[in-house]
């Protein structure tokens, strides 16, 4: 607890976070990958900023724009929130590359990546943090774990998810039922180990990260969450399924060739500017 009294509202905590630069290491870094999210990004930032600020810990928000061609980056930049970092890149590199840039720029003890559509409400971060506090290295929000509550998910996405889960668990031996939920929490050490190694820039980066977590003997668990399908999803189930199967083979091939034995990306330290163009 800091100098704000216990009776203060989450609005008070938010206002302090929005205007006062943190001076210590963040307890939490939240990374939002964003590609053409001008319609969704501001409400998502508002919800996340209000809730995480209410936890009364130092934290930072990183929006990793992925070469958006709409006004996503401009909208975020104009917010003028002192503990928000906007990472930009001139070209669209894929969700995996955006998450990697964000995670490697994060300075928090814990690193959460959360999709820009707020499909997994931010309030559920506490249940993931509890698992980290119990000793886990990676905690995955799961729509497939017992107790999960999934709303408005289309039939095609249900079939797609079930198929992926069967392949991943049965063939790939990854003990996680839902590899693709865009809400995952890592310790800083685990995030560094995983994201400096992972190579896939597209949709299947989650799968690669979890594969590497198993390879590196990181303790990984799933937490059932409430998940609400956000209209306007950019996921094309059929296209992604093909890419997913291709990437499964690529991951195995990369591993067989020893491409995961060392780091593939340098650590990134960002302490000063809030807007950091990256190439």
């Amino acid at each position: 607890m800091t100098d704000l009294a216990a009776n203060n509202s989450s609005l008070d905590y938010y206002r302090r976070w929005a205007t006062t630069p943190i001076t210590e290491r963040p307890r939490i870094s939240v990374v939002i990958p964003a590609y053409n999210e001008e319609w969704r990004i501001l409400p998502t930032i508002g919800a996340i900023a209000t809730h995480i600020s209410s936890l009364d810990v130092p934290w930072e928000l990183i929006v990793a724009d992925d070469g958006s061609t709409d006004s996503t980056a401009e909208l975020v930049e104009e917010l003028d929130l002192v503990n928000l970092k906007l990472l930009t890149t001139p070209t669209n590199g894929g969700k995996g590359s955006a998450v990697r840039r964000g995670v490697l720029a994060a300075q928090g003890e814990l690193v959460l990546f959360a999709d820009a559509d707020q499909s997994t409400p931010i309030e559920q971060i506490e249940s993931l943090i509890a698992r980290i506090d119990e000793g886990d290295d990676v905690v995955v929000a799961s729509r497939a774990a017992e107790g999960a509550d999934v709303a408005n998910k289309s039939l095609s996405r249900k079939v797609f998810s079930a198929g992926l889960s069967m392949i991943v668990r049965g063939i790939f031996r990854i003990p996680v039922a839902d590899t693709q939920c865009g809400f995952k929490l890592f310790t800083a050490e685990a995030a560094d180990l995983l994201f400096r190694r992972q190579l896939i820039d597209e949709f299947s980066f989650d799968l690669e990260v979890l594969y590497l977590a198993g390879k590196l003997d990181l303790k990984t668990s799933e937490v059932p969450v409430t998940w609400i399908d956000a209209p306007g999803s950019k996921v094309d189930a059929a296209k992604v399924a093909v890419e997913f199967l291709r990437d499964l083979a690529i991951i195995r091939w990369n591993d067989a060739r020893g491409r995961y034995d060392g780091v593939n990306h340098p650590a990134v330290a960002i302490t000063g500017p809030r807007v950091v163009p990256q190439r």
Binding site: S10, P43, G46, H51
Partner: peptide, 11 residues
């Protein structure tokens, strides 16, 4: 609510 108020501010 607080989150809705913040969203109204940011937008």
């Amino acid at each position: 609510s607080d989150p809705v108020r913040v969203i109204l501010e940011l937008t």
